[in-house]
Design a protein around this nucleic acid. Sequence first.
DNA 1: GATAGTATCCCCACATTTGGTGATTGATTA
DNA 2: TAATCAATCACCAAATGTGGGGATACTATC
Lengths: 215, 215
Amino acid sequence: MNLRIAIFDDNKNIRESISLLLRTVPNFQVVGTFSHVLDCVDDVKECNPDIILMDIEMPGMTGIEAVKVIKGQLPHVQILMQTVFEDDDRVFDSICAGASGYILKNHLNTKLIDAIKELQFGGSPMSPSIARKVLNKMQSVSSAIKPEEAPDYHLTPREKEVLSCLVNGLSYKMIAADLYISYETVRSHVKKIYEKLHVASLTEVVAKAINQRIV
Amino acid sequence: MNLRIAIFDDNKNIRESISLLLRTVPNFQVVGTFSHVLDCVDDVKECNPDIILMDIEMPGMTGIEAVKVIKGQLPHVQILMQTVFEDDDRVFDSICAGASGYILKNHLNTKLIDAIKELQFGGSPMSPSIARKVLNKMQSVSSAIKPEEAPDYHLTPREKEVLSCLVNGLSYKMIAADLYISYETVRSHVKKIYEKLHVASLTEVVAKAINQRIV
DNA sequence: GATAGTATCCCCACATTTGGTGATTGATTA
DNA sequence: TAATCAATCACCAAATGTGGGGATACTATC
């Protein structure tokens, strides 16, 4: 079974030399090379690659934007960024856009072949410095990854509904109208919420609800 | 210049075989092997390694907790997780604790040597499946990584102070007391904030302030 | 069949917030 | 020097939220 590869790079020499290199590998098949990504979705649909090598700097639209649109329409395609840039912004933007690997252009040849093979078998090849950046980033956003488990305040479903209305800025009246209950019922729920969250004002409720992701 | 390596693993055979393996590499120096991490900080201070190989499952304290305390006290040490576990929790916990690499135990020998060398030169070696997990995680928390740049509401410093008081649940009166200004002045600031944020209630202010990280 | 919990509703009195309009001072800037 | 803006303070009237009661109906669950 052949591995179908497409290449997006605005530099003709690079396209051709990568193409030549990959053709020497058994089972690798270069099914398309493109100098820009303006028609990338059509191009990709046309040549139907398993893996895409994507440069970043290209005329008209960047490779990062291309990753986003391609993954949006063809999520099964694996995309390997291959670029000279290693600034945080471009690295993380690429990854968030959906790239499955990121290698730098400085040391080509065998590394590239290994990277493609790694990608083929479910890995995510990254140049060493990129991998380090990624791990450091993970650590710096660890609060988003491992949210310290929010205490459970045992809010009832209805109370949670009311709470989320409050967080959306609705007044008691509006909540009453929204949930088809009376103003006084809203008050009852809010009182309960105050008790359960140990707070004494709407602002505290909202702050606590958002910060502890209760909503 | 030698590379000093310490090994934490509760399995004696593994400690010894890794130790033997690493001793065959020029410039590698195994400076300590330990069967548990209960005294890890002392152990590490004692043998002063550049790189630590850390298993996860050990008696008394897990390798992940050990990473946390070691990195807390000796942040310059590079720690390479080396384990059989590849569940998301342990992987991300290890990384968030401060590990600089994560490789699986199934394919030892040369891979391990390469990983240590990669770590030595500022990389973050990961087994392919681990790297994939990490990239996927990055994508799933992309909102935390690339917060869509909050619009600037041109709040004055004083207004920001008042705003953060509001977010902390203080009433107008309390804010007045806190900032040594009159109740009416607080009101003026709040009115301005309402205008600038285009909202009409405290709850909306608080929600917007927190969600858009204005505070 | 008693108990506990949820969801619904009501009243009173008081506190707080809100929407107006308007004013003074000092600093910065055009 | 005139204009702008931040920061301060004031008053009025109306709307909204808060704290304390209490009540009913329905579901579970023991």
